[in-house]
Design a protein around this nucleic acid. Structure first.
Lengths: 350, 350
DNA sequence: TTGTAAGCGTTATCAT
DNA sequence: ATGATAACGCTTACAA
């Protein structure tokens, strides 16, 4: 219709108030605590809001109330598949809420993280979600003083800043490695990229499992600080086999690496799982439908995001959880890549 | 040191001003347009800012100036690999800037998108980045009236709302399909998930290539509105082969699907590329190191994000580009999955 | 239950 | 080049 859409640039609370024949503060109340206003006025105000297509100005609201609807999210990387699943959980959980997500990228740097915490603090966030438990001391103390709910995600530890939702990377890695050992693999390697704190703890889980089985890990660990990728997984498998030609399996510190390792095995005609076993970490969707399908440790990344948000919403509501640390656990997904056929159970290489 | 870190909760412009012996507005100027202030005062103010660890209140600034540093980003999905690369580009480009990114999720729904545009409008964004060119009429008109730079990304068209950076999905798909045809494949299928507008345009490119070669596509297209996944790719390949047992190649509407198709071929012992050719779309990192490596169309997703941001920054600076539509093009990455060996060039199935 | 008045911390405007 | 003053649109505190 030729008629130009009305700009709502200038529509304020007082405009709505005037139209409804009430004062501005009443409109404000209808919008935030409807129960404080009589049904009669409430209705009139709602009609006026609709009619004028009023939308509140968040800046004015933040300034007056010294609070925002912004939940700050601090993660090491936007790209990383792992975090993107967590993020989706976070966005999903805030969808029907008035909360806004403000994402920031620490780039795996503790100093960057501290700087970002400082910035968020000046924005009076409604809540904070931060990845990991390895904040700087200053960072931790700022988060503590923040007077909003703070949730650390991805990991668990006995001393949360406020709340936590995650799982034990050590246990998860130990379980996966143990599974390889139980399936008859004896020279189990470790392929680890990035080597951030979580990766390191997985590495320790790997070593613990081997130690418990009385197996050695000397020279079987290939690590790099480079970001993980499928390509890198292939290269690292090559490195492992050069360094330890008798390696018969790998626990990969994440699924990208495991995929790269699988492709490299295919390329070398190294039969998976009989000649060589592969286990990954995180269980991205693809793991179930590769050929052969890949064993991995499923971590509840989406749920982690959801729970972090719901912990914040509840806390904002005054509902604190019984226990501030939520352990979401993990699940070993046993698939073909570690399922040795009987006749090779004795550990003979093809 | 035991001494408790000073809270900057209450430090305002006037605190800094008092300390520097100037008025508040001068401090504000030093922070925003240092050149307006004499070097002498400028220095004194800077010292005071440092000493007090002052951080401006964005809400107050937004309220007073009727502008924010927020760039609104509207994408269909946070999870989608494609968009996460674009996002990384966006975040990378804003890293050293004062711009903040505010992400919102349209969930592939045009009505949701319109609602989000309305919300962003009330926040007086510094700029907007929106995926695609299929906004609702109302959405387009709101974006137009926004009085901030608006960049549509992912696609190009002759009538940008404001600016655009993308490429032709039609041409890219046509090129990939044509490549399959030139390599001797005759019964080329199409596997498409999601079927959003961009996917549809790729489908048209596929049909155009076959038509130009005088080839038929009847029954060779398998599509679904479900979200794409590797698993789905495998299933769709199965569907294609049931429906058209003589299919000898597929153009997959994205790389997830292509990977699923590859694994399914491995599972069926259907030799790639001799018995069956596979081409994907987007060229995610993994494509180069699968076995066999997968042909794909490289799209410049990261660069798209970067450029969108730099177009906004420049526009904010008054520097408009010569041409409002930036075509980033694409690149066919020919790999083993479409490289038939000579003796099979005649089109015989193994 | 409703309204009045006084900021919130910054920037625009207009002086000097 | 610097400053005084008045918004910006909302919410808190208090009053009726």
């Amino acid at each position: 219709m030729g008629k130009k859409q009305r700009q709502n640039k200038g529509i304020t609370l007082s405009d709505v108030a005037a139209r409804a024949g009430v004062s501005a503060i009443t409109v404000s109340r209808v919008l935030r605590r409807p129960q404080m206003v009589s049904p009669d006025l409430r209705e009139r105000v709602k009609v006026a809001v609709e009619a004028l297509n009023y939308l509140p100005d968040p800046a004015a609201s933040a300034l007056a109330s010294k609070r925002t609807n912004v939940v700050g999210v601090l993660i090491p990387s936007v790209t990383n598949q792992v975090f993107s699943a967590v993020l989706r959980g976070i966005y999903d959980a805030t969808e029907e809420t008035s909360l806004d997500i403000q994402l920031a990228n620490t780039r795996y740097r503790i100093a960057e993280e501290e700087k970002l915490i400082r910035i968020f603090r000046s924005q009076k966030p409604a809540g904070m979600i931060v990845a990991g438990i390895d904040q700087s001391e200053a960072g931790k103390s700022m988060l503590q003083d923040l007077d909003c709910p703070v949730v650390q995600i991805m990991e668990i530890s006995p001393d949360p800043i406020d709340m936590m939702v995650g799982f034990s990377h050590f246990e998860a890695a130990r379980t996966a490695t143990d599974h390889l050992v139980r399936n008859g693999y004896r020279r189990v390697g470790f392929l680890g990229a990035r080597m951030d704190p979580r990766t390191q703890r997985r590495y320790e889980g790997y070593r613990a499992a081997l130690a418990a089985a009385g197996l050695d890990h000397q020279g079987l660990a290939i690590t790099t600080v480079a970001a993980s990728s499928v390509t890198l997984g292939g290269q690292m498998l090559g490195d492992l086999l050069s360094q330890c030609p008798d390696a018969d399996a790998v626990f990969c510190n994440n699924d990208d690496i495991a995929l790269g390792a699988l492709f490299e095995c295919q390329r070398r005609r190294l039969g998976v799982p009989d000649a060589f076993g592969i286990a990954g970490f995180n269980d991205i969707e693809m793991m179930a439908c590769t050929y052969p399908s890949l064993t991995s440790v499923r971590t509840h990344r989406h749920e982690m995001g959801r729970r972090a948000v719901s912990l914040i919403i509840d806390a904002l509501d005054g509902k604190r959880p019984e226990h501030p640390v939520v352990d979401l656990g993990f699940q070993l997904m046993e698939r073909d890549s570690t399922r040795r056929s009987r006749r090779l159970d004795i550990g003979v290489r093809s």
